[in-house]
Simulated assay, not measured.
Amino acid sequence: MGILSRASYVIRSKLNSVLNRAEDPTETLDYSYEQMRDQLQQVKRGIADLTTQKKRLEMQKRRLEENVEKHNDQARTAVQQGREDLARRALEKKKTKMNQIEDLERQISDLQNQQDRLIDQKNELQSRIEEFRTKKETMKARHEAAKASSTVSEAMTATGEEFEDVGRAIERAEEQTEDMEARAAAMDELHESGAFDDVLSDKDNIDRELEQLSTDSGVEAELETLKSDVGADEAESAAEQTGETDEAELTDLEGEDQDEVEAELAELQDEESA
């Protein structure tokens, strides 16, 4: 096989493959069925035409037969009248008509045989068409069922692939969500630790430590001041409480001294009275 022949074979193969994929078997079956029906109609028309031709010949034969009877009567009448010449002419015409009748009978017989063959062919073709119609409907039903099954299978396959894609998309979404949550938590932790302030500041570590010490010293000094203020307030309150106590004690002492004076005065008065 030459190169061109192989190329032509490959091209025809590919074209046949494309046509097979594009071809709808149900449409092909319907088309074949219609073609067979058309052939059946042609056979029926042929039988009708043949029958019509045969009927014409039969009508012509009947006319000839009528002429034969007519010429026969004419010959008998001519003989009765002594006209043998007329009788001979009538008989000659009768003979000619009989020869034509024989020829017509052969033609009619041939047409009848053709008609019988065509009728047999028509009946056989009609039986085949009915059988093909049954097979066609069965094949169409099988094809539709197979097509539906194939469609469902393809749909299920596509659905499985889509589910896989959706599953992968969900996994990617979960990973991205977890990454964003971890990043947000890290940002919050850095913000709380002051890392962002350090990043934005232009101070080095020593400056920040000195500031921290200064801040701590200020806090300690303020704490001592608060403690001193609190101690002074407590001392003053204690002094006030002590003064009140001394005054009360002094009042008590004065009361005791007054009682003693009154008692001593009473004794002196008793002595003077005695």
Results as ranks from 00 to 15, higher is better:
2 G>S: 06
4 L>T: 12
6 R>W: 03
8 S>V: 08
9 Y>M: 09
11 I>K: 03
12 R>V: 01
13 S>G: 04
13 S>P: 01
16 N>D: 07
18 V>D: 01
22 A>V: 08
23 E>I: 08
26 T>K: 05
26 T>C: 09
28 T>M: 14
29 L>D: 06
34 E>D: 02
46 G>W: 01
52 T>C: 10
53 Q>L: 12
59 M>Q: 11
61 K>G: 00
61 K>I: 02
63 R>V: 07
65 E>Y: 03
65 E>L: 13
73 D>W: 04
74 Q>S: 10
76 R>W: 08
76 R>G: 00
76 R>N: 14
78 A>V: 00
79 V>D: 03
85 D>M: 04
87 A>G: 09
91 L>P: 04
95 K>F: 11
95 K>I: 00
95 K>P: 01
101 I>N: 04
101 I>P: 05
102 E>F: 12
105 E>I: 13
107 Q>V: 09
107 Q>A: 13
111 L>V: 00
117 R>N: 12
119 I>D: 04
120 D>H: 03
120 D>R: 09
123 N>H: 08
124 E>Q: 07
131 E>W: 10
133 R>H: 05
133 R>V: 04
137 E>C: 05
142 R>S: 00
144 E>P: 02
145 A>K: 13
150 S>N: 11
154 E>T: 10
154 E>N: 07
162 E>N: 12
166 V>P: 00
168 R>E: 01
169 A>K: 05
171 E>C: 02
173 A>H: 04
174 E>G: 02
176 Q>C: 03
176 Q>I: 05
177 T>N: 10
180 M>A: 09
187 M>A: 08
189 E>P: 06
195 A>D: 12
195 A>C: 11
200 L>W: 03
206 I>S: 14
207 D>H: 01
209 E>D: 06
214 S>W: 03
214 S>K: 08
215 T>G: 06
221 A>S: 11
223 L>K: 15
223 L>F: 11
228 S>I: 08
230 V>Y: 03
235 A>W: 01
236 E>V: 14
240 E>R: 13
241 Q>R: 06
243 G>M: 14
244 E>V: 14
245 T>G: 07
247 E>V: 14
247 E>Q: 05
255 G>W: 07
255 G>C: 08
257 D>I: 09
259 D>H: 01
264 E>R: 14
270 D>W: 03
272 E>D: 15
